[in-house]
Amino acid sequence: MTNADGQSNYSRIEKAIQYLEENFKQQPDLDAVAEKVHLSPFHFQRIFSEWAGISPKRFLQFLTVDFLKTKLSESKNIVELADAAGLSSQSRVYDLFTTLEAVTPQEYKQHGAGIRINYGFHETPFGLCLLGVTERGICWLSFLQADGDPRNELDSMKHHWNNSVFYQDQPLTASFIDQIFSNQRTATKKLHAFVKGTNFQVKVWEALLRIPMGNVVTYQDIAAQVNSPKAVQAVGSAVGANHIAFLIPCHRVIRKDGILGEYRWSATRKKGIIGWEMAKFKA
């Protein structure tokens, strides 16, 4: 959703989150935050509550180090998280939410040769995104910076799938957006991810799919899950190489000290996504 001046509501929300974090010691009130994003207090409270379902003050509580440390202590391992979400086994995570298919070794060597990718640019709860879809599933999702050039994201997708053929098809990709960002996915509406990566990267991305929405884990947790407990740095690299944002939830991996850390599509957006998910599930 975009305002009359062309600025999306999410860009204002992101600025507000950044301002609240930078000035948390002063505990700025609603009027101060609204002024910072050039809105009336009433208008800002309304758009933030519509977006998150809670007040800005309550939202910020989800992003404190103490709160996140508590969430980590509750999340001893990914299997326990899946069980807590009412899933009888790890495989049930895929049945209910997302299936993942990787390119074959031959396709990996050919860098996507012969694969048709339809793409489109769409507004999401976290700003403008680029979505790429093949007949075998969603193969790309990236967020654009507020002042970024859409062509740069398109170039990144084309570089990743550099021997594929690309066609813009807004109606086709639009049909996926609501389903991707819904917090009520069901077994009758499965989402399929189609990825290109090394065997190790694919194992890490599969582990990410086992993290239920509204929860966070550490890089060490993921390393243990893929049976490589000493490969924390390699896990971090694989998490950062994820090319399907949000759907493969690399944003749910944080540092063991409770710091959220960096994110390929901006650290502030990572805060926004984590807080939004926790608000939806009333963490």
Rank of each mutant, 00 (worst) to 15 (best):
T2V: 14
T2M: 09
N3G: 13
A4I: 09
S8W: 03
N9W: 06
A16C: 06
Q18K: 14
L20E: 04
E21K: 15
E21A: 07
E22L: 13
N23S: 11
Q26F: 06
A32D: 09
A34G: 09
A34P: 08
E35Q: 14
K36R: 15
V37D: 11
H38W: 08
H38D: 15
S40I: 01
P41T: 05
H43Y: 13
I47L: 15
I47N: 09
S49F: 13
W51C: 09
A52W: 00
F59R: 01
L63N: 01
K69E: 02
K69T: 00
E74P: 00
S75L: 00
S75D: 00
V79R: 11
L81K: 07
L81T: 05
D83Y: 14
Q90P: 03
Q90Y: 06
R92N: 02
D95T: 10
A102T: 12
V103F: 06
T104V: 05
P105A: 05
P105W: 01
P105F: 02
Q106F: 04
E107G: 05
G114Q: 03
G114F: 10
R116Y: 05
I117T: 03
N118E: 14
N118Q: 14
N118M: 05
G120W: 04
F121N: 04
F121M: 09
T124H: 00
T124A: 02
P125F: 03
C129V: 14
C129N: 04
V133L: 11
T134E: 07
E135R: 14
R136I: 02
I138W: 07
S142H: 12
F143N: 03
F143Q: 05
Q145G: 15
A146M: 03
D149Y: 04
N152Q: 14
D155Y: 10
S156N: 13
M157N: 10
M157Q: 10
H159A: 11
N162D: 12
S164G: 11
V165W: 11
F166T: 04
Q168E: 15
D169H: 12
Q170F: 07
Q170M: 13
P171L: 04
A187W: 02
A187E: 14
T188W: 10
K189Q: 15
K189R: 14
K190G: 15
K190E: 12
K190N: 15
L191V: 08
A193P: 02
K196I: 10
N199S: 14
F200H: 11
W205C: 08
W205N: 07
L208M: 11
I211F: 10
I211A: 07
M213K: 13
G214P: 09
T218C: 07
Q220S: 13
D221L: 06
V226E: 03
S228E: 13
A238C: 09
V239T: 12
G240V: 01
A241I: 03
F246V: 06
I248L: 15
C250Y: 06
C250S: 15
H251C: 03
R252P: 00
R255E: 13
K256Q: 08
G258A: 04
I259E: 09
G261A: 09
E262G: 12
Y263R: 05
Y263F: 15
Y263I: 01
W265F: 15
W276S: 01
M278A: 05
A279T: 03
